[in-house]
Write a protein that binds this DNA or RNA. Sequence first.
DNA 1: CTCTTGATGGTACGACCGTACCATAAAAAT
DNA 2: ATTTTTATGGTACGGTCGTACCATCAAGAG
Lengths: 211, 211
Amino acid sequence: MPKRVDHEERRAQIAEALIRVAGRRGLHAVGMRDVAAEAGVSLRLVQYYFETKEKLLFHGLQHLTDRFTARVGARLAATGPEPGPRATAEALLLASLPTDEEGRTFHLVYSSYAILSVTDEALASQPFVDHPDAAENALTGLLEQAREAGLTAPDIDARVEAISLLAMTATMGTSILVGQRDPESAVAVLHHHLDRIFTPGPTQAVATGRA
Amino acid sequence: MPKRVDHEERRAQIAEALIRVAGRRGLHAVGMRDVAAEAGVSLRLVQYYFETKEKLLFHGLQHLTDRFTARVGARLAATGPEPGPRATAEALLLASLPTDEEGRTFHLVYSSYAILSVTDEALASQPFVDHPDAAENALTGLLEQAREAGLTAPDIDARVEAISLLAMTATMGTSILVGQRDPESAVAVLHHHLDRIFTPGPTQAVATGRA
DNA sequence: CTCTTGATGGTACGACCGTACCATAAAAAT
DNA sequence: ATTTTTATGGTACGGTCGTACCATCAAGAG
């Protein structure tokens, strides 16, 4: 046989081609031939690594969420070591906003999958329950922790605020995509709410004995 | 010639068939044959009243927004005569939530159009700029008016709050569609923010000399 | 050195989809 | 009464799409 090839690597390569063409022409318009051409392989190869289009689409979603999680992590890491709760929350939210090309593709394709999953039961809508739930729980925990550290208004409802922030971010992302809103405006709205939630307070509570 | 027929009426009939099947099987999956069957007419008739599928889709969007506007108006009227700013805002927001079958279809199909318009330039994304802008301006005006009447916290930023409320409503609508959130939870979040914005205040400022 | 097996190419099939073409019945215009 | 126009039906064409089938080449296994 020819050189043994790493299946997962090939599948990742093809999945990324799928995401690229979906970001360019829309998820509804991607065919297996388009994916093959974008990945630089033959149609037969796409069939070989993903038997059916349904499985290809499913893996594409999985790959997309993985890449997005990595992106958020990178953004978080880029805010410097040991970021405070507010900086963490801000990085989390801003990473979801389509401000660059990668973010644009993420938001568009992920939204396409979400809408698609409402009517196509083949595409399990499980990811659209689990993934947002995880984000919501993470942000809720962050806000609770900040509140207990005295960094927020003392009477905030952490979960409600987490839901609200994530929800606003998602819709404003779509607004940016369709050209209704510019990114700066969206960021300003988010800052408004973060300012409302996080009080100026005792200016860094831990590890920095009052600068 | 046979009985003269009202073209606009027939077009409306077909457009509603389009919306129904799009709500059932997804906008990406609707073909002209499906629309024809759903409307109870022949494929040729759909071609006759809408030359091309592109024009059919465009008119479908137009019809959808019209019907949605009517729905919001009906909800508003149902809140009784002379509703206060808070009741008005609440009716506006709740009407957009997919709590009944009609709302579900509205939200799903409208979202599908929005996502579609990002990549298919044929579908003018103009409606996705104009229509949300109008809603945002209306709600902003409502909040400003309420603030000047002393019904809200005196320092609210009307536009930012309007944007936030509408954005939260939209995303939570999608969350309901995919089964991540139940309608009651979404309503609770909206109430939380309405409670934050609208102060109990002087309990009706006008026309009711202190109950 | 065979022989199996994994990786890949090419291509054809059946189904569907949007559109175009041709036909026809019936009301209105002449 | 004839002719034009309008509404409608049926159907066929060209393209595309997902999938299945068949072939081939090369690297390990025996």
